[in-house]
Design a binder for these strands. Structure first.
Length: 423
RNA sequence: GGAGAGGUGCUCGAGUGGUUGAAGAGGCACGCCUGGAAAGCGUGUGUACCUCAAAAGGGUACCGAGAGUUCGAAUCUCUUCCUCUCCGCCA
């Protein structure tokens, strides 16, 4: 979330910038400022009263030590009213702080100056493109047909075991999955990321830390007996490694990568967009996460985008990079680049990666800070990106590389699959 | 799941209800010493919020978390979470 300090010191600027995200912040920001003032005056009152009580208590201690029972009793009487006062004021302060926090988590991150205005996906800017769209034969079919033809993925079997959106990968389909995971992890490692294996379920504090809670409560699977959430992305556990941590400046940047299965309820999304691998409840993804100095985070964002570009290039897929418009960006992001690959048989672009700078928005919730040379603490910037999500990559690979002989595997992947053709 | 022990600062570790934000040790930082280093000596070493134009200074809160008893709680009581040991179960 945004820091109180920033909001109260840059009120009009905050409202203007939020407008780009199509968020009307005028009234909520005014409310925040008002509550913050109340918070301060209340704290002064509580602190003053508490200080008085502390002093009285010390006096009483001294009186008793000196055997001055009467003076002690007198002082005790004085504390009664003081304590009542502190209780009332303290409750008030807690209530104000709670309300303030409730409001703060409802305010999205401010978009970066370079974010284009816009409301929908159509307003996103195409940053650059690459690769070439293959000319498929007229009898080319979408990946769900190919998956069946070569017995790679069994969607119906997944329905039987779990439900829609939980496919079963088989044979070369399963090996392709495993190959892609290793390919992505090895590349990330070579790019200097430390591989970590995080838990797949997290507690509420972690969900809150990265912003899934309370905003996207309904999108996560919730194990109510133990009050744990299945992770929608490895971003959640990996970023939360740094929750409540004060780093040394020389530890920055921190670069982590992690493979995980991802679980998403995808409540409310139905229709033809969800066919085959396009939208699943469980899928595999390799994530990259960086914790960076605020001065360098945009430089790092560019590096991460360039890195993901090398992946789609190695996989020989036609790709494009979008700079997301204000309306299409996530709640917590300041600047996001999406990667899409062209799915030749479906004849549409599929989102396969999203790389974002969250600036200090997540860090503020996480309380992840670093120590500056003058020994002060400052919030870090957090960034992450998919590198990459498997299902749509698989969809594009299958569709784009279909030939009469079978499905061709891109050269870079063959050492990982151990085969060069699916037939 | 059953029984027991315990959770204190960067780490280890003391702590009797009353100047304890917290002894002591280690670590770290700075300074002195040195040609340089080690050793030695000295000094310093939490976070958040508030106050102050700012700095200095001052105040409040925090000894797993929450509530309570008390004039006063790291210290007493209750709840809860977590860790460890033993037993049980088990990949």
């Amino acid at each position: 979330m945004l820091t109180l300090k920033y909001i109260t010191e840059n009120t009009t600027d905050v409202i203007t910038r939020l407008a780009k995200k199509n968020f009307d912040g005028a009234s909520i920001i005014a409310h925040v400022v008002e509550l913050d003032n109340l918070r301060k005056t209340t704290q002064v009152q509580v602190d003053t009263a508490s200080a008085e009580l502390n002093n009285l208590s010390k006096e009483i201690g001294l009186f008793l030590k000196q055997g001055k029972q009467d003076e002690a009793a007198q002082a005790k009487e004085k504390t009664v009213e003081l304590k009542e006062n502190i209780k009332i004021l303290g409750d008030q302060q807690t209530a104000v702080e709670q309300k303030l926090n409730e409001l703060l988590v409802q305010i999205p991150n401010l978009p970066h100056a370079s974010v284009p205005a816009g409301k929908h996906a159509e307003d996103n800017l195409i940053e650059r493109t690459g690769g070439s769209i293959p000319n498929l034969p007229t009898d080319a079919v979408p990946h769900w047909d190919l998956a069946k033809k070569y017995d790679l993925i069994d969607f119906e079997l997944g329905v039987k075991i779990s439900g829609a959106g939980f496919p079963v990968y088989k044979g070369k389909g399963a090996r392709l999955q495993r190959a892609l995971i290793n390919f992505f992890l090895d590349n990330a490692m070579e790019a200097g990321y430390l591989e970590v294996q995080p838990p797949y379920v997290v507690n509420a504090a972690s969900g809150y830390g990265t912003g899934q809670l309370p905003d996207k409560e309904g999108q996560m699977y919730h194990c109510t007996v133990d009050d744990l959430y299945l992770i929608p992305t490895a971003e959640v556990p990996v970023t939360n490694i740094y929750r409540d941590v004060i780093l040394n400046e020389n530890e920055l940047p921190i670069k982590n990568t992690a493979y995980s299965a991802c679980f998403r309820r995808e409540a409310g999304s139905y229709g033809k967009d969800v066919r085959g691998l396009n939208r699943l409840h469980q899928f595999d993804k390799v994530e990259i996460v960086q914790i960076q100095h605020p001065d360098k985070s945009y430089e790092t964002l560019d590096q991460m985008v360039n890195y993901v570009q090398t992946l789609v290039e190695k996989l020989e897929l036609p790709w494009r990079i979008l700079r997301l418009c204000g309306g299409d960006m996530s709640f917590t992001s300041a600047l996001t680049f999406d990667f899409e690959v062209f799915s030749a048989a479906q004849e549409r672009w599929l989102e396969v990666s999203s790389v974002s700078n969250f600036e200090s928005y997540q860090a503020n919730r996480l309380k992840c800070r670093f120590r500056t040379p003058d020994k002060k603490t400052q919030l870090v910037h957090t960034l992450n990106g998919s590198a990459m999500a498997l299902p749509r990559i698989v969809a594009a690979l299958l569709e784009n590389n279909q030939t009469p002989e079978g499905i061709r595997i891109p050269k870079a992947l063959i050492p990982y699959t151990g085969f060069d053709l699916i037939d």
